[in-house]
Amino acid sequence: MERPVPVAQPPAKVLANMYRVRLGKLFSNISILGLFLGLCTVLSFMVTATVLVMSFAILIVSFGTILLAVPDYLSKMTKSVEVTLTVTNYLFQAMPVIAPLTICASALAIVLLALDKNTKHTGRIILASVVIAASIILFIVFLGAAKS
């Protein structure tokens, strides 16, 4: 066997392709975080609603006797709803910024990964497309909710 010849520096085109792929993966990862935050916002809405419904359900089911057992039940209930509402409000206000950023990051990820001729990134491209679709839906829903 011959002595290994050290591989020269990657040609500029190959290097540019490598950087494109790295940047594409980076944007793909960022878009996943954006979608996660969007889903957290939806989830926080649901948690707030659940806390409120459960609190009232306990009040109704116990025929108000819960107020005798826990005199400050109503204030405790209000406090717990306030906490979840603070988180929901914070995420809700951030959504008009997060959703467009997520859409942009996903679009960039698709373009950059699709340009790679050497390796197909089908999984990541499909994921980024799903993220775009979900982000658009979330953006429309939150925009509609904010206007109403």
Binding site: P10, L15, M18, Y19, R22, L23, L26, N29, I30, L33
Partner: peptide, 27 residues
């Protein structure tokens, strides 16, 4: 080829490190 064998490897590596929020989102 390895990406780190590029000409400006240190610069690109650091650039990607900062862009990816201190390597959190980097591959």
């Amino acid at each position: 080829y390895l990406e780190i064998r590029g000409k400006l490897w240190w610069l690109m590596s650091l650039l990607f490190f900062f862009v990816s929020v201190f390597g959190i989102f980097d591959s």
